[in-house]
Design a protein around this nucleic acid. Structure first.
Lengths: 191, 191
DNA sequence: AACCAAATATGATTGAAATCATATGTTGCC
DNA sequence: GGCAACATATGATTTCAATCATATTTGGTT
């Protein structure tokens, strides 16, 4: 259920929370309680700047986590609001910190997870810089990003789903990709 | 001199490097040697896509660090180039990894640093998802991303410099921003 | 079985940013 | 001082993805 290394935590370190749409998981200024895993729905993290502008910091989706950095600050510096009816799992800050001190494998797992995320986000940013929709979709498929739905991929790589479907069709017509099923495409092996 | 947790390292773990403007600290594909601290000047981390597009991943300024994630990969996945005559301090990968195993405080500090980077990349990706160029530029300025040149900002947030200048002009005309100098803009305080 | 919501798929039109072009301002350098 | 490189700045045109529209398929629910 939980991603590494959080699967190593004791059961009493995690608490499931059910949230209605619009409900807060935490607010800017609240004392930090820990990090969260999204089971269903979606959580949006926003912050108000000094000048009063609302800046979205992160949209946490199913399978994702948020507020990792809260482990290192006393108070949350943004609001976390459910943008749909959601279920999240709260992971206790104290339990994580204790485990981090006492278990080198857990500690390393956490650091490695963050490092992996940094790499993944960098790859995504590189993908976003590709101007052509066709090439962007091709590279996304080539780097194994078409796992879930095409709709999901589209949002991940910064295109509309329509543009994404069109690109997939054109790439298939051009022989760059081949369609392996409904919403499934594979690289055309060059041999 | 060095920020946490790298100030805890032995002196022989660090090596100063002098760089001319345009010189590389490392290149994409180089075997990882460690992380770097900026003493003077500025280092820009960019990644070249297969299509040749340059994406700015990070602008490390005086007092900042870069390439923390290289500790968990064998090869650098971006170029680090001095955008001005610079002095950086190289921190040995081996020394860091050894210290990480032997010193819990050091290890925790490193994890905190990575968590902060994850936060930053998420914010950048969220920014890239904003369709309107004007709003994107406004939010970028609101979240303090206009530090270096407008050209740098444009590449960071996924716009051409022209579109970026135009947005800045329009936002200024609309009274959302105010121009504080050549290539310098500030939020219009609402009070 | 019937129904609904969401994903898949594609066609037509539009609009906004990219591109191309040009000019001035600034900085560092020989 | 003069030159080269780059940042700043804005105007004109083009292009390509967004948007709007519509139809079918699928999976889940009652």
């Amino acid at each position: 259920m939980l991603p590494e290394p959080f699967d190593l935590l004791n059961e009493d370190a995690s608490t499931p929370l059910i949230l209605a749409k619009g409900e807060h998981v935490f607010r800017q200024g609240d004392e930090t309680r820990g990090v969260f895993f999204v089971v269903s729905g979606a959580i949006c993290l926003t912050r108000l700047t000094e000048a009063g502008a609302a800046v979205t910091l992160h949209n946490a989706k199913v399978g994702g986590m948020f507020a990792e950095a809260s482990l290192y600050s006393d108070h949350y510096h943004c609001d976390a609001i459910a943008v749909a009816p959601s279920e999240v799992i709260h992971l206790s800050k104290r339990a994580i910190q204790t485990r981090q001190r006492e278990d080198a494998a857990f500690s390393e797992g956490l650091t490695r997870r963050l490092a992996t995320q940094v790499q993944d986000y960098r790859q995504l940013l590189t993908l976003h810089a590709v101007k052509s929709a066709n090439e962007r979709v091709y590279l996304a498929v080539a780097s194994g990003r078409l796992r879930g739905s095409v709709t999901q991929l589209a949002s991940e790589i910064g295109l509309t789903k329509e543009a994404c479907y069109r690109a997939l069709k054109e790439l298939t017509d051009q022989g760059e990709l081949c369609k392996t099923g409904r919403g499934e495409y594979a690289l055309r092996r060059s041999f």
